[in-house]
């Protein structure tokens, strides 16, 4: 049996008095698209940050392709093959759109010229090709979100972590973004773990959904299963409504 690409095993994290994540386990198989959903404050971004190496879990194990990720710095996690975007976008504001992506591409290739070629390919893919010469600070929010994705993709990750890239996009833009990820998943076999509130994107994109609430795993299943699960409705709407 092929081991899953990402393994999260009994991971816990406490911030002072708050148990942000409490014994969460789930897996992401190679080539799978998994959505991580839950109400505000459920601990989704905390979980992401632990996978990306921003801070380590108090307990538990996180592994990528069998290799331990716990204790690695964010740059080492990137080297291990994890690309990520930030919920609050972090463009290199004074660099051109293309140079932003070149920085990411320089992780995949060592020289600037091939990095630039790779950057242009990725920009074509996400639809930012015409804006590549503009400074990143001049982009609109949807374009900045695309730039986040392009930069992460340029590192040629095995696993892409997307932190609410659809938030604030118009439905048409969401559909375009969903199309991009579906193509990457189908053509390049890219594995994706995404945090998302936009259910339109979750339903269209994900093979499987992991639901967490108050730091605990609620359930996992296909999108269709999850939206009908009473436990999921309860954590979004409160117990009396069910």
């Amino acid at each position: 049996m092929i081991p899953p690409l990402l393994q999260v095993e009994a991971v816990s994290k406490r911030f002072r008095g708050l148990q942000a994540i409490d014994g969460v386990s789930f897996e992401v198989a190679n080539g799978e698209i998994v959505a991580l959903i839950g109400p505000n404050g459920a601990g989704k971004t905390t979980l992401f940050n632990m996978i990306a190496g921003v801070f380590p879990p108090d307990q538990g194990r996180i592994a990528l392709g069998g290799g331990d990720l716990v204790g690695l710095r964010p740059d080492q996690v990137c080297k291990a093959g994890v690309g990520r975007t930030f919920q609050l976008v972090k463009p290199f504001a004074n660099l051109s759109v293309e140079d932003n992506v070149v920085v990411g591409a320089l992780h995949a290739v060592t020289k600037v010229a091939p990095a630039r070629r790779l950057a242009r390919e990725v920009l074509d893919l996400v639809g930012l090709a015409e804006k590549r010469g503009r400074p990143a600070r001049s982009l609109t929010l949807p374009d900045r979100k695309c730039l986040e994705v392009a930069r992460a993709l340029a590192t040629r990750p095995r696993l892409l972590l997307l932190d609410e890239v659809m938030a604030g996009l118009r439905p048409a833009e969401t559909d375009r973004m969903v199309g991009i990820f579906q193509r990457l998943n189908r053509d390049a076999g890219l594995t994706i773990l995404l945090i998302e509130h936009v259910m339109r994107a979750v339903m269209a994109l994900s093979h499987r959904v992991v639901v967490i609430n108050t730091g605990k795993l609620v359930c996992t299943g296909t999108p269709a299963e999850v939206v009908r699960d009473p436990r999921v409705l309860e954590c979004y709407l409160g117990e009396d409504t069910v």
């Binding site: 990306a52 710095r73 964010p74 740059d75 990137c78 080297k79 690309g83 990520r84 930030f86 972090k90 463009p91 290199f92 504001a93 004074n94 660099l95 140079d99 070149v102 920085v103 990411g104 320089l106 992780h107 600037v112 930069r151 992460a152 590192t155």
Partner: peptide
């Protein structure tokens, strides 16, 4: 490129493997 990236945003630079 690495220098300018970390000048602009250290966290983002680190997430890109720098």
């Amino acid at each position: 490129y690495r220098w300018r990236a970390l000048r602009e945003d250290q966290e983002a630079a680190q997430a890109l493997g720098i």
